[in-house]
């Protein structure tokens, strides 16, 4: 699956790290890094992390799981 985090919006609350630590990591107190194309097996975790983000900074691909009729 594909995600992107708007790191301008992210304020380092780290809820995503609690819910999906294989996908989201904090470097130090506040700098978030993440795996932008995590394995599909993580989908539920990542969806929960996105829902829990207090500033709603995590965007999940809306085409995931559908046929891509274009460049892949």
């Amino acid at each position: 699956m594909r995600i992107v985090v708007d790191l301008n919006r992210c304020q380092g609350y780290a809820q995503c790290v609690y819910l999906a630590h294989e996908v989201f990591r904090l470097s130090g107190q506040e700098a978030l890094t993440y795996e932008p194309n995590p394995d599909d097996a993580r989908r539920l975790q990542v969806e929960r992390a996105a829902a829990a983000c207090p500033v709603q900074a995590i965007m999940i691909d809306r085409l995931d799981g559908t046929e891509r009729g274009e460049a892949s």
């Binding site: 594909r2 995600i3 992107v4 790191l7 990591r25 890094t33 993440y34 795996e35 932008p36 194309n37 965007m59 999940i60 691909d61 809306r62 085409l63 995931d64 009729g69 274009e70």
Partner: peptide
């Protein structure tokens, strides 16, 4: 942005940076 950070560090492969889509663009 991930290229100079998590990709260089070796955590995320460079081809794992494909952007999510908001919709089909045809």
């Amino acid at each position: 942005p991930p290229l100079s950070k998590q990709v260089l560090k070796g955590w995320v492969p460079a081809d794992h940076t494909k952007l999510p889509r908001t919709r089909e663009v045809n």
